[in-house]
Design a binder for these strands. Structure first.
Lengths: 317, 317
DNA sequence: TTGAGTGATGTTATCGCGAACATGATTCAG
DNA sequence: CTGAATCATGTTCGCGATAACATCACTCAA
């Protein structure tokens, strides 16, 4: 018992015994068994973080925001990856919940019924992140992708572009990309404009895909004057390709991506984009969990507002 | 007890009761408590994976290799990030070991004494990955970065380059980058060549840094004819910069990076590089853990051989 | 001198499950 | 028809810590 007190800095222990315990522990290479500790105390200092992918760069950044905040608490993030598959999300969630974490941060608002039920039944704080177009189980932090698509559409129209193409990922599973696309086409439609070309990819090097798709749509429809990419990586690929072709950007063709990834800073031209507030989303989500764990109550719906960065590839209004 | 048997598919349970249990569990939203299960069975199906960073792209790929293999077992990876800090590594390791995982996969061979002691004392399989220049606590899977540096040096010399610069990360904490650099300079020295310029960065967008540093060294030493970058991202930045400047590559200046990242495929020219076998490292490491957990004994030292890819930026021999 | 207060340490029960063994029912070979 | 094997289910105990309470020694004010 005294050992337990020393190792947790709890209760009164004389300096002498504390010292003895500490040296003995070091000597024996003793590592306390958190499993037993958690079972006895009914507390687990883990926060389940469930995201679709680690190779998207977006998610490591969210994670980094989460870590920043949790580092000042005794909570620890544990990551699960779903590969954008609802069934895998359900499985991962089940696995994580069976460890009785102190909270869950999960990407997206779309989950299987079973997953949603588990989240509700878990009795722990749940923050759904990235997206705010929908109803959260508990709390949510993110941006409206529909609005992001709309705003980009308006900026493009305002800049005078008319023949607009959309290049993106195959979207059945990426709801946020889908919502951006929907918002985008909606806003164009209101001005009587229709996307004149669209192309979707999956897998492969995004940069290379951006090139290929850009080339493909321009071959089919040479008079395109704007291309909206569903992410910056393929946008960067397209930008590199068009520059090589000697196309005047943003005069002849304008370009925009989405995410505001750091990578863009090294490109020959700054691609127009929209910041997805990734770091902030992670931080805010972690804050909600941290507060909730300490019994405070908090705002549960936070919609951040991304702003357009015009870069060098979209004429300013 | 019967419930336990049903939920773990162990022992005999009649189809009827199994059914009853399953429906009851679903109805109640029952999620078994792994904490108690682990405590009772002394088995935890987690594998601790400890890596320096998630934003390096190298590590997500290693992780993906690990996941691929572990998916066919009942093991699950749990990731800890150290930010290249030895003390944080120690802390993360301690935290993870206190959950009594079934195995540890940890990047690098350099750890604090305490960390090494914990690994030894843990009594579970430990695989140190990425690097083979040193002595593992238990098993190791990786490539020799020293040799990678040497081989690149030889290829460069063979191609006839003479004024060679090195651009990389600030290395005190990135031992693998350091070893590559050491192998590189060593091999050059054997041919009486010395690196004529070197520059190190930390933080920021790697692509942008690659540009800046390339510009900087060329301003200082305009007659450089080869630049070896410690990773592909800064190499890509340098490549983009030099192409903009209208430099003849690989005639006037040759370039090479390291890692073989997918990104390169979308660049205007293919950067010379060396594959770090990331996916393979992850797979092999996971295999070792999986085998060991099932009592099989396995090879414990696996050195993979990366090969040079000449791309378009290094003259072929 | 006393007894309340505090500081340091010990004791016991408990967390929710699984291992090991126990039990009762059924099957089946000889 | 019997005894052994098999199947289905139940019982008991213990995993390694913590919560809650208990104990004992000591201090100090009234």
């Amino acid at each position: 018992m005294t050992v337990s007190r020393v190792l947790r800095n709890r209760g009164d222990v004389s300096a002498a015994t504390r010292e003895r315990v500490l040296t003995a522990a070091k000597e024996l290479g003793y590592v306390p068994n958190k499993i037993a500790g958690a079972l006895a105390s009914q507390r687990v200092n883990l926060v389940a973080v469930i995201i679709p992918s680690l190779s998207n760069m977006v998610f490591p950044e969210v994670l980094s925001g989460i870590s920043q905040i949790l580092e000042d608490t005794d909570l620890q993030p544990v990551v699960g990856v779903t590969d954008y598959l609802p069934e895998k999300e359900e499985k991962v969630l089940y696995e994580m919940l069976s460890w009785r974490p102190s909270g869950v941060i999960i990407a997206g608002l779309e989950h299987t019924d079973a997953a949603r039920a588990m989240l509700k039944a878990s009795g722990i704080p749940v923050v759904e992140i990235m997206d705010t177009d929908g109803n959260p189980v508990d709390a949510m932090v993110g941006i409206s992708h529909r609005r992001a698509g709309r705003e980009m559409a308006l900026a493009i129209l305002e800049a005078g572009y008319k023949k607009i193409a959309f290049l993106g990922t195959k979207m059945p599973l990426d709801h946020r990309a889908r919502k951006r696309f929907e918002g985008f086409t909606e806003a164009l439609a209101k001005s009587g404009v229709e996307v004149c070309e669209r192309e979707f990819y999956s897998g492969g090097s995004a940069l290379a895909k951006g090139r290929e798709m850009t080339q493909a749509v321009l071959e089919r429809t040479p008079d395109i004057d704007f291309i909206y990419y569903s992410n910056d990586m393929i946008g960067a690929g397209g930008l590199l390709y068009l520059l090589e072709q000697g196309v005047d950007i943003p005069g002849q063709i304008g370009l925009a991506g989405f995410n505001g990834v750091e990578l863009l800073q090294g490109l020959p031209r700054q691609l127009a984009t929209m910041d997805a507030c990734r770091l902030d989303i992670g931080r805010k989500a972690a804050e909600i969990i941290a507060r909730r764990v300490t019994e405070e109550s908090v705002d549960t719906e936070i919609a951040l507002s991304p702003t357009i960065s015009y870069g060098d590839t979209l004429r300013r209004p």
